[in-house]
Design a protein around this nucleic acid. Structure first.
Length: 259
DNA sequence: ATTGTGGCCTGCCCGC
DNA sequence: TGCGGGCAGGCCACAA
C-alpha cells in the first residue's frame, strides 16, 4: 500500500507535469473530494493554473498551482498515473489489473497528457490547501533528535507511536514491522521504555531501511515481507512469527530476537 | 489531551 | 462453478 516510499515515487512521477497548465479536471467520484467541495469547485479552482511544484509531506502528495495547492492522499490502494505511466506498477493489496472504473480524479493539461488517481477502494482523498500542521517530522529526513521527541511523553506501544502521523509522518504498517524486526524491538514495547541506545539503533535502521527499500522499489520489498502470514517464520532465526494487533493493525514479529 | 476502536471502501483468496 | 466470509490498512470520527 502507499506508504512514504510509494508516495515519494508518485512525487517524482508528478514532476513530469510541473510546468503544465490544467485545462480540465475530471471528478468521476465526488466521494473522495474533501473540504465540502464538489467537482465543479475543483475544476474552477484549478483550470487555467500552471503547476509549479510537486512536493510530498509524509504520505501526502502536494501539487502547487500558484493558486490553491492540490493535496492527494492515496489511502491503501491509490496509484498515481501520468500520461499512462504508473510510478508503481504493482501495488500490494491494490487492484491486480487496470480498470477505468477505478479512476477517481484526473487533471488534463493544455500540452496534452494527463495525471490521474486510480483507487479501487476509494480510501484515498483529494483536497485543496490541506492542513498539514498536525503532521510530525517526515520519516525520510528524520533526525535522531526528532525520533527522540516522537517517542517521548505519553504512553502506548512503540509501534502505535511510529504509525501515528502526528509523531512521525510517512511510516505505515509494512515499513514499521520491517524496521522493528531489523532493530530487534518488539512492537509491543512501551514507547517510553526505549532507552537511548535503542533509539539510536532504531534511527539508524529507519534511515537504512527506507534507503534500501526505496531502491528496491517499495514497502513490500522488506526482508520480513514474504513471511508475513500464517505459517511464516523469522528470516533471521527461523522461529514462527507471531501475529498481534497493535495500534489497530495486524503486526508480525519475531518473539526470539525482538524484545 | 491522549489513546483506543470501529467503520469506510472493495478486490481477492480460500473453503465449501 | 459459484458464493460467502474473512482479510487487507490509511485515515477519520468518535468514545473513553
Amino acid at each position: 500500500m502507499p506508504e512514504i516510499l510509494e508516495v515519494e515515487a508518485y512525487r517524482r512521477l508528478a514532476e513530469r507535469v510541473v510546468g503544465r497548465t490544467v485545462v480540465a479536471v475530471d471528478t468521476p467520484d465526488n466521494r473522495i473530494l474533501r473540504g465540502g467541495l464538489d467537482g465543479s469547485a475543483f475544476d474552477q479552482a484549478l483550470t487555467g493554473r500552471r503547476l509549479m511544484a510537486a512536493r510530498r509531506v509524509g504520505k501526502v502528495l502536494l501539487l502547487d498551482s500558484g493558486g490553491p495547492t492540490l493535496g492527494l492522499r492515496f489511502g491503501m490502494t491509490g496509484r498515481l498515473l501520468v500520461d499512462g505511466r504508473a510510478a508503481i506498477e504493482y501495488l500490494e493489496w491494490g487492484g491486480r489489473r487496470a480498470d477505468p472504473a477505478w479512476e477517481r480524479f484526473s487533471l488534463h493539461f493544455r500540452s496534452g497528457g494527463r495525471l490521474w488517481i486510480d483507487d479501487p477502494r476509494r480510501l484515498g482523498s483529494v483536497e485543496l490547501d490541506p492542513d498539514l500542521s498536525a503532521l510530525g517530522p517526515d520519516a525520510l529526513s528524520l533526525s535522531l533528535q526528532e525520533l527522540r521527541g516522537a517517542l517521548t511523553g505519553g504512553q502506548g506501544p512503540l509501534k502505535a507511536r511510529l504509525l501515528d502521523q502526528k509523531r512521525v509522518a510517512g511510516l505505515g504498517n509494512l515499513l514499521v514491522d520491517e524496521v522493528l524486526w531489523r532493530s530487534g524491538l518488539s512492537p509491543l514495547r512501551l514507547a517510553g521504555s526505549i532507552v537511548d541506545d535503542e533509539v539510536r539503533r532504531l534511527h539508524r535502521t529507519i534511515r537504512r531501511t527506507l534507503d534500501q527499500m526505496g531502491r528496491r522499489g517499495g514497502s513490500h520489498t522488506g526482508d520480513l515481507f514474504e513471511q508475513r502470514g500464517h505459517g511464516g517464520s523469522c528470516p533471521r532465526d527461523g522461529v514462527a512469527l507471531q501475529r498481534v494487533t497493535v495500534g489497530g493493525r495486524t503486526s508480525w514479529w519475531c518473539p526470539r530476537h525482538q524484545a
